[in-house]
Design a protein around this nucleic acid. Structure first.
Lengths: 219, 219
DNA sequence: AAGTTTCGAAACTTAATAGTATCGAATTAA
DNA sequence: TTAATTCGATACTATTAAGTTTCGAAACTT
């Protein structure tokens, strides 16, 4: 079972008072930076061996943390993985700072510029590792999608709309469908085929699929 | 570890002679029909709960078989799942009997006619269940792909080539890429999004993506 | 200084399950 | 008839891993 909320503060030890205690104001403070370290280790291991292949000991060892430190933060393995995935969202595509080169093709390719594609591949693999969890908790499918794929789709949507507005491509295309193509094929290629999501593949998708589907070469 | 070959015949009991014995000619014969029943149970459970969620007891119970009957056929769980997936291949798209309506659109839609799409979805879900196994044995990715997706891609390839030959669509499209679109998006939709692979989605892909990418509406 | 909490480390408990062994009944060949 | 083998069922073993507890040291509040 996945807990409703993340554990915050105590409840451990020989406490018998049962009631929820307010955040402790005394004692050593929690090192917030351990959270990120642990979650990052979790994501890496998730990408490598999947949810069921990942043990809490592996995570603790890689993060150089004790298991108590891990379980003080998340009640269960599933809870931890959930937050790890949710956190990836923040590092994703920066929707407020999209490329704007004047060419749709360049915009689409530039989406992967600052952070190289290894990082995208790592995240896709982490998502692959989560599929096992999705079987047990289908509701998590949305969390994973929102965190990893939705921002990418949204970015494509914006870039395509801009191209329509500036008259670069005809306005009658199914933008919604086209915006999903690259994320879908990227996920499939990484998750199922286990092939690299590299620049060659990216360019092939843009030139062989996305732009033609939008009617570009017919102009 | 995954065994090289499927166990055939004996080696069980109190045999101490070590050497590989030829197929027994005496005693009760193996009921070959149990194989299919067991593998079918395995596929269903795989689709429902994934590889790690599936226990050998579940499979035996659903197939109304004893575990000895299962392990007499396959040495390990992974072996069994492998053969189950390989067997799905034979029930897939009939490449020797593809639709040929004279219209690419109708051909693509007709691919899913005889067997309804629930079956396709079940197979895609079984594949989703296998992703966990792929994390541990990446070599299996090819087996799964060959069994479940490659025939579908090949069918698309053939149908598209025919349309090019008869002049329905221009010959300069990236056929290889386009042929992969529907399987990729179908897999992604089923595996990650956990949304239905229904006729509506199929038509949207064909009309909003595949045909436009091939340059059809510009003719 | 005193009391409380967090830290990493490691020992421990407990539940689940892959795989094995055994059972009595049924099937087959010699 | 007899010996070998398969069948479903079930008990058993061994391993793995989630989650708990304990430890001594460090860090923080009052």
């Amino acid at each position: 079972m996945i807990s409703e909320t993340t554990q915050d503060r105590t409840e451990a030890g020989t406490d018998t008072s049962g009631g929820a205690r307010p955040s402790a104001t005394v004692g050593r403070k929690r090192d917030a930076s351990r959270d990120a370290t642990i979650l990052d280790a979790a994501i890496s291991i998730l990408a490598e061996v999947g949810y069921d292949g990942m043990t809490m000991d592996m995570v603790a060892v890689r993060a150089k943390a004790g298991k108590a430190t891990v379980y003080r933060r998340w009640a269960t393995k599933a809870d931890m993985v959930l937050e790890a995935v949710a956190r990836m969202k923040r590092e994703q595509v920066d929707l407020d700072n999209l490329p704007d080169t004047g060419s749709l093709r360049d915009d689409l390719l530039a989406l992967f510029r600052p952070q190289p594609m290894e990082e995208t591949e790592r995240k896709l693999r982490a998502m692959a590792g989560m599929t096992a969890l999705l079987s047990q908790h289908p509701a998590l499918a949305d969390t994973a999608h929102d965190a990893l794929v939705a921002p990418w789709v949204e970015a494509n949507r914006v870039l395509i709309r801009r191209a329509v507005d500036r008259g670069e491509i005809p306005p009658d295309a199914d933008i919604e469908m086209v915006a999903q193509v690259m994320p879908s094929m990227g996920a499939y290629r990484t998750l199922i085929r286990r092939q690299p999501f590299d620049r060659t593949f990216l360019v092939a998708m843009v030139d062989g699929l996305v732009l033609p589907a939008l009617g570009l070469p017919c102009k």
